[in-house]
Simulated scan of single mutants.
Amino acid sequence: MSDHVIREKDTIYISTPYIRTPHHKQPLVFKDYLEPFEEEHRIHYSLQDYDKSHHLLQLLRTLYETQSTIIVDLNTGHWQELYATDLMFSDDMTHIVGFNGRQGTTQDIIIWERQKDSNDGRYTRVFSSNELYEQQYDDNKKNEVYEARDINWTADNKINVDFIYRVNPTDTVAFRSRYIYATDDKEGTWQRVLPDNDINN
Rank of each mutant, 00 (worst) to 15 (best):
L74V: 09
G101L: 07
D49S: 14
I14S: 04
V29H: 03
P36E: 14
K186W: 06
S118Y: 04
A84R: 05
L56Y: 06
P169S: 13
I19W: 06
Y179N: 10
T62F: 01
D3Y: 10
G77P: 05
A155E: 12
Y179V: 10
L194S: 14
D51A: 08
N75I: 04
W112I: 11
A148W: 04
V145N: 09
M93Q: 15
R122E: 11
P169A: 12
D51K: 11
I12E: 02
R61T: 13
K158L: 06
Q136N: 14
H24T: 07
V126R: 12
G121S: 05
Q191F: 12
Y64Q: 05
D86A: 09
H54F: 09
Q136T: 01
E40P: 00
A155Y: 06
T21A: 02
E113Y: 07
V5Y: 06
K116G: 10
K31Q: 15
N100H: 13
D86L: 05
Q80H: 08
N140M: 10
I159D: 06
L82C: 06
F30C: 02
A148F: 07
D73T: 08
G188R: 11
N160P: 01
Q136G: 14
Y18S: 03
P17C: 05
Q115P: 01
Q107E: 15
L82E: 06
I6E: 09
V126P: 07
V193M: 11
N100C: 04
N140H: 12
L34C: 08
D120S: 14
S118H: 05
P17Y: 00
I151M: 11
S46D: 13
A84L: 09
S53P: 00
T154I: 15
D162G: 05
I164V: 12
E38R: 07
